[in-house]
Design a protein around this nucleic acid. Structure first.
Lengths: 198, 198, 198, 198
DNA sequence: AATGAATGAGCCTTCATTCAT
DNA sequence: AATGAATGAAGGCTCATTCAT
């Protein structure tokens, strides 16, 4: 049995709320005090829940972190998926970038730390996959109005990384000008794709 | 006294070798087993040195990590600084990208993990500064043949991040085609700068 | 948050017992093996408790020692405070001396070592204060039947030191004659105060 | 062979000086930074001597500390021994008290910390003995003008403790009025002996 | 003799996790 | 289901002491 997925899918409404509480506590500790302060006892205390209860819902620390990543991904999901309805690849990518920027600006430090955490191999295995950001980009890059890429998977990966890197850097600087950030992102991404704006 | 700078400058040749051993052991553990396995006892053991010796030269775990970053930066330094002798900003950037790619391909995983570690605020303070990659880019971006940037410091930061992100991603994928990687990097960077190749 | 005060007030009876066990183990190690052997691992082991449990209730070694001092002070407290009900200053001091001797004879070596430990400046700050031995003496010295002292605080301090010194010395010699010890103490203390017995 | 006495009696003048240097360094560290900072490496460094040399002259840390105690005792010795030439026991004791106060006021914190260190059983064994303060008091107490004590050894011990305790307390308070301190000491001591001043 | 690099036992402390209640 | 007391492996770091040079 995987030790990374939630232990039980909570069905009772109280349990659902408890899980949400724990995740939010985890998010707050991470963004307010950083990785080093992120430990299960602290999360449980902040959530107002016993450490035993935390382990009832999450089989371990990693599972908790991964659930948090998933929560943020889901939060982003609908907004991002709408990009696929855009008429062209270019507008779809712009839409996606806009969604990513919006997401990041709302909880910049949290997003940044989760991005870093996601780099760990265990996390990559558990979170990535079909539902992700990468897959979305992959689909968009296949659109006919964008230059064909020799290796679409790689290009999708690279574009995702560029977006992530610049958004995280902006967050770290405390940059809050979403429009300017989007403009820079588009320049870099379309430049990468060989579809630079004139 | 800072707990992040080396504790004692080795004078005897034996000591110099010990320090080198420790740093190399740190590098190997980091790249072979990752951040989580990176602890002072393991490093000392791998270096074939007592834990006491490690602490004779490094005041703590963080200092060790930072010294390792510095070592890699220095290794990269000469190669990168040569970029400033290039006639134009464009060629200088290309030179810099080439140097970065070369550096990364030699020890991809190590470089990637150090990049991640460098993200921690304590590390940023200790390592960055004048001698860095960022300052180099900053100077290059001021060259007249490149489009003027509204905020050069930010642009330099962003360019550094793009380079870092794409190189790390390539390393993670096991990508070893340096030329192709450089081409993609140039596309993204010059795209970002509004100087896309035609 | 102070690293010297107990970390968590035990609520469950089991926890109360654990704390008591730890303190008693600390006392035993101190008196049987001395300061040098007093370390958190040894205390936990002797208490039959894991080192983690010790740190659950005491934030560190010093806090443990201070809690032990406090325990002994409290044990002594009621007995000593009764001195204030004595009709005269002289009898009050005699009462106090008697109480101190009684306390010391029960666990002479422990008391002696705690007295020494209390000399350390960190300990002084944490333990002394209103509830202390010194304050009690201070009040007694203000009684009208005792000679007025030019500096009551200093006199109280000195008297406390004399009592402590002679009792500790007796303990170290293995002296068990309480009555004789009290007589010598009274002689020294009342001599100091200029109220020597005729 | 005892591990507490100096390893070799230095005969060459340079060696004598080195030993003196080390002892003075030890004294300075102790009084300026306290017990916790008192370690062999620090002493050697402050003395401007290699750690190896320190171990050439002292077989261990304890030997160093004990030699320091001895040094202070010797410094005190001549002054104190002169007390024996006083015509009466009373004046002899007064002389001794005066000498002790003078000694203490010159390096109060050092003397205080050495007094504490002397409490340790290993130290007692090595330092005490015939040449000490105690023996001096013992002789004085036998003088005919002082009240006969039922147990002279015990009385000598007690008197020594009283003197030590009050002087240390004064040092800790930063008290620098030697005359007043002597007056209080005499009161306590002669009170103890049943020879209170009128 | 002197040096100082090296050693490593040992101490302090944290935190993920378990389990009796 | 919930609680929180208890666990103990693991890791950071110091410092007395040794020994090759």
């Amino acid at each position: 049995m995987s030790a990374l997925r939630p232990r039980k899918r909570p069905t009772q409404p109280r349990a659902v709320e408890t899980v949400a509480c724990i995740l939010e506590a985890a998010a707050q500790i991470l963004e307010a005090q950083g990785q080093a302060a992120f430990n299960t006892n602290a999360v449980a205390e902040r959530a107002g829940v016993s450490i035993g209860s935390l382990y009832q819902y999450f089989p371990g620390k990693d599972a908790l972190l991964i659930a948090l990543m998933q929560r943020e991904k889901d939060r982003f999901g609908a907004d991002a998926a709408a990009a696929l309805s855009e008429p062209t690849g270019r507008t779809a990518l712009q839409h996606l970038i806009q969604a990513a920027v919006r997401q990041q600006l709302s909880r910049a430090e949290l997003a940044r730390l989760l991005d870093i955490a996601e780099e760990r191999p265990e996390a990559r295995k558990a979170v990535d996959g079909k539902s992700g950001f990468g897959a979305l980009i992959h689909q968009i890059l296949a659109r006919p109005d964008l230059p064909a890429q020799p290796d679409v998977a790689r290009a999708a990966d690279d574009v995702g990384q560029i977006i992530r890197a610049l958004i995280d850097a902006a967050g770290l600087r405390g940059d809050t000008d979403a429009v300017a950030l989007e403009r820079r992102l588009c320049a870099a991404v379309f430049g990468y794709l060989g579809a630079a704006q004139m």
